[in-house]
Design a protein around this nucleic acid. Structure first.
Lengths: 95, 95
DNA sequence: TGATACTTGTCCGGTAAAGGTCAAATATAA
DNA sequence: TTATATTTGACCTTTACCGGACAAGTATCA
């Protein structure tokens, strides 16, 4: 999931939650919850966070969206099929 | 999208919105909006609707979920990549 | 011109989720 | 032990969405 990834990235950069929190101007508790998937990461925070964590915004965006899609799909037995169907559909309109 | 599909199915069965509405115990306006994707189809309504439309609930469920996934993914440029990533991830935990 | 089907706009109450904060509890390291 | 980092739980406010209803408008056809 996304939270773990964010934590990994942060730690690999030797950063403290406090420092991230400061940049985003929020409480460290909030960051902690994002890293434990208790609170979602908003797109705005994502944007601010990417450079701090040394990851391309687009790459993080893929992870972020994939995480949300995964979350939805896993709730249903037909999740995998639905993902395939959605992919097919999106492929169509993109061409 | 899902709404159009529901409408097709209904018409192919020669049913009126009024009849569907009666079964679901709602207003026809509400059905109309579902068919025009103005209101989402709830899982409960989906369940009731499937037999009326002569479609397997599971099949409708796939369409329904795929539609929601598609909707999310299409908002981002990286939507397709995210769908792939999500699929990969879900495949993993399913094995 | 009716009648019937459908659509569209507006409104509404309830619920849930987002986006936090704060205090207190825990871990960890010096 | 003390300081610093993180987690957890309770709470709060605001916003968004859901599931509808209702009235009025439009389309179609006999």
């Amino acid at each position: 999931m996304l939270g773990e990834k964010l934590k990994e990235l942060r730690e690999s950069k030797g950063l403290l939650q406090r420092q991230i929190a400061a940049e985003l101007e929020v409480d460290t508790a909030y960051i902690s919850k994002i890293e434990s998937n208790e609170k979602p990461l908003s797109r705005i925070h994502l944007k601010k966070m990417a450079p701090l964590l040394g990851i391309e915004e687009e790459e993080l965006l893929i992870l972020w969206l994939a995480d949300k899609l995964f979350d939805m799909a896993k709730e249903e037995v037909v999740g995998l099929k639905a993902l395939e169907e959605a992919k097919k559909e999106l492929g169509k309109i993109l061409k």
